[in-house]
Every structure is written in structure tokens, then in C-alpha cells.
């Protein structure tokens, strides 16, 4: 089971799939763009993470209908979206707490 809190690459992969279904190369480029070039995934890292997420039922794999090459694409499952929302809520709470504590120290 992909446990919480998620690692940054896994979180970025899930965020990439939250907007729309994507294939492998599209996920790589989107992760790079979202992180301003800070997180650059190798194909080994990407497919390791995708496999774990598939096994845990966070994402599902399907054949792209538009693609002539029968490329495989990935999308979030309902459970995966719920888990992602839980993680985002946890991070929001943490950020709010951190902002409060830092502001209190500065004042």
C-alpha cells in the first residue's frame, strides 16, 4: 500500500494525473513543468512508482483510443483521487500550522 505521506515524485505523478489521463512521456514532462525543472524523473523511477500505484489501486491503465500506436495511458481511480485529497488536506493543515508558528516567532 502506498502509504501517506507520499514522496514528492509520487505526489507529483498523482497531481499530473488528477487533471487528465496521461501516458508515460506526458507524465514526465508535466512533473518537470510542475516542479519548475526541480524533479526530473527517469523512466525507471516513473514506472516503479506507476507499478506501485497500479498495484495499490490508486491509478488504472488503459489503451489510448486516439493513439494509432495503441499507447498505454494512466488515470486516477476514485479511490486514488480520495487518497490524494486526503494527502492534500493533510499538507494544507501542516502548511497552515507552519505559517502560524513561523509568524508567531517573527512577531
Amino acid at each position: 500500500m502506498e502509504s501517506l505521506p507520499l514522496t514528492e515524485p509520487v505526489l507529483l505523478i498523482l497531481l499530473s494525473l488528477a487533471g487528465q489521463p496521461r501516458h508515460g512521456y506526458s507524465i514526465l514532462k508535466d512533473v518537470e513543468e510542475m516542479s519548475d525543472g526541480r524533479v526530473l524523473l527517469s523512466t525507471g523511477t516513473l514506472y516503479g512508482a506507476l507499478r506501485r500505484l497500479l498495484d495499490d489501486g490508486w491509478i488504472e491503465r488503459f489503451e489510448e483510443a486516439e493513439s494509432s500506436r495503441g499507447r498505454q495511458a494512466y488515470r486516477l481511480t476514485a479511490g486514488g483521487r480520495r487518497n490524494l485529497q486526503t494527502e492534500v488536506s493533510r499538507m494544507k493543515q501542516l502548511t497552515r500550522l507552519a505559517s502560524l508558528r513561523v509568524a508567531r516567532k517573527e512577531s
Binding site: 526530473l40 524523473l41 527517469s42 523512466t43 525507471g44 523511477t45 516513473l46 514506472y47 516503479g48 507499478r51
Partner: peptide, 14 residues
């Protein structure tokens, strides 16, 4: 280098 590292680490993890 990133690809080689990713493949070696990924294979080990698998």
C-alpha cells in the same frame, strides 16, 4: 546518468 541510476535502482527495488 539519471536513466542508468533509475534503471539500476528500479530493478533492485522490483
Amino acid at each position: 546518468l539519471r536513466e542508468i541510476r533509475g534503471l539500476v535502482h528500479g530493478a533492485f527495488a522490483e
